[in-house]
Amino acid sequence: MNNPVMEEQFRAGFINFVMIRLHLSGLAIITLLVFLLYPSQPISYFLARSVKPEMFNIALYTSLTFLSYLTIKAAILSIQNTKIISIRDWFLYTKISVISYLWGRISYGLFYTTFILLLLMPVLLVSGSVSAIGPLNILAVLLFMYLLMLNIYLIGLLFFTLFKKQHWMMTLIIWIIVILLFFLSPNLFPDEHPALLLMKLQRSGSLSEDLKTPLITSIISIFFLLFCSWLSLFLYHRRVHG
């Protein structure tokens, strides 16, 4: 753990008791939901109507909301009971470069996104198995979900580098963007809408074809967001050092 930014993030955000409580309560709520919504009808009920139990979709979207909340929280460093070093202090009092600061934030983002996704994975996989989603399909859904979370984290990070500190306006803007992009009516993005893509991937027979475009789009958007964050930090770094 060479990067001081990552280490600070780790100690502040991850081992914080409030955060653990948050993780656990989220997990408990989704688990309870899955257990309560476990299908009681005979299998033939669904087969005859050519519908599958919607358990996986319910678990998926609840998890998505919860994970978005947590990633945005992590990206904008709004961690309760913790004093966080501001970007200005990092640049002014340590000799950290823009790249290592960004690397610290991103590596934590990667780690944290993986962690919370793994946290909810047992619940997601149980509901996925009840909804009879094949192993490859479920892996594709999880991969796409991971990229989504990473994008959300980077959006949060970009706005944090623009605002430099926590502000309610920033949180509001990020949430509006996330809702617009991922949760609002699919009419806005009829072909590339993430919610529709997540449903499509669940039943897709040709995953390589269906995953190709969303994968490329998310990777391009990840690099774009990274570049924007770097540019914003670079300009700030120059301003701080006169």
């Binding site: 005979p42 299998i43 005859a48």
Partner: peptide
């Protein structure tokens, strides 16, 4: 559907 519903294959 009525037959399938009464086929008795349950979770």
């Amino acid at each position: 559907i009525s037959i399938l519903d009464h086929s008795g294959f349950n979770y």
